[in-house]
């Protein structure tokens, strides 16, 4: 039976090993994003790695005008349909403080865009009664902090959205998994020394294992579940004086 994946934010540095792996296992790939030239290269990579088909799709989190059309095309595929979103942007908090108008974009990229798309896709998957939706959120969404609270707020919204979507789609056999990465070795973090940094390869493994075990929420690296359990339990009077 055919397995199809649509990847939102397919040019993401974190996404590439996972995309390669899905392709090598014979999935039909729909690679969605803004940079069509880069997406074409990824599609070629997928075909060589073993994907029977790899398509590129124009997707902008800030422009929902073609979502219906994308969903329409996906509805025409056969077999299991799956979706994953890597979309997100994180301007420096200081930049946002200087130009608060940036907030709208941050929320669109991490929340509004992916959620609008997934909500359109949901009925198609519900009708098939199978498939998986994976959303890349962030540990930053677990608690607002000095360094990135607008980004964190957008990710918190997305985590909450995914939790509700899971509640809804679980009833029809569609599984929704929330992924909360800590620092990952990507351009966002390159050259910075950060605790418990993991790699895109390890993230891909964690996601695949999570899907296999039908986990609801995973942290990657897994140690972040513990770290965030501690951080979310620091009393607010103490937390508000901390800076990290």
């Amino acid at each position: 039976m055919t397995t199809t994946w649509i990847v939102l934010g397919a040019t993401s540095a974190m996404a590439r090993p996972l995309i390669r792996d899905l392709a090598a296992h014979g999935a039909v790939m729909y690679l969605a994003g803004r940079d069509m030239a880069e997406l074409e290269k990824l599609a070629a990579d997928c075909r060589i790695a073993g994907a029977p088909e790899a398509h590129t799709v124009k997707f902008d989190a800030r422009d929902a005008s073609n979502y219906a059309e994308i969903v329409h095309n996906l509805a025409a595929t056969e077999g299991t349909l799956n979706a994953i979103s890597f979309v997100g942007t994180m301007p420096e908090q200081s930049e946002i403080d200087a130009s608060p108008d940036l907030i709208a974009g941050v929320v669109m990229d991490s929340m509004t865009g992916p959620a609008t798309f997934l909500t359109r896709l949901a009925p198609v998957m519900e009708a098939r009664g199978n498939g998986v939706i994976v959303g890349i959120s962030s540990v930053a969404g677990d608690r607002g902090r000095l360094g990135n609270y607008v980004y964190g707020a957008a990710k918190a919204a997305f985590s909450t959205y995914l939790s509700g979507l899971r509640n809804r789609l679980g009833r029809s056999g569609v599984h929704v998994m929330t992924v909360k990465p800590g620092p990952v070795d990507t351009p966002m973090t390159f050259g910075k020394k950060m605790p418990f940094m993991t790699t895109p390869e390890a993230v891909a493994k964690d996601i695949l294992r999570g899907i296999e075990k039908r986990r609801n929420v995973i942290y990657t690296a897994p140690i972040w579940r513990l770290v965030m359990a501690v951080i979310t339990h620091i009393p607010e009077p103490v937390f508000k004086k901390m800076s990290f």
Binding site: A13, K41, L42, A44, D45, I48, A49
Partner: peptide
């Protein structure tokens, strides 16, 4: 990180 496979020609094996 520049590690994509760009083209493959099965007639020759050129990758």
């Amino acid at each position: 990180r520049m590690n994509r496979l760009l083209a493959f020609a099965p007639e020759t094996g050129d990758l």
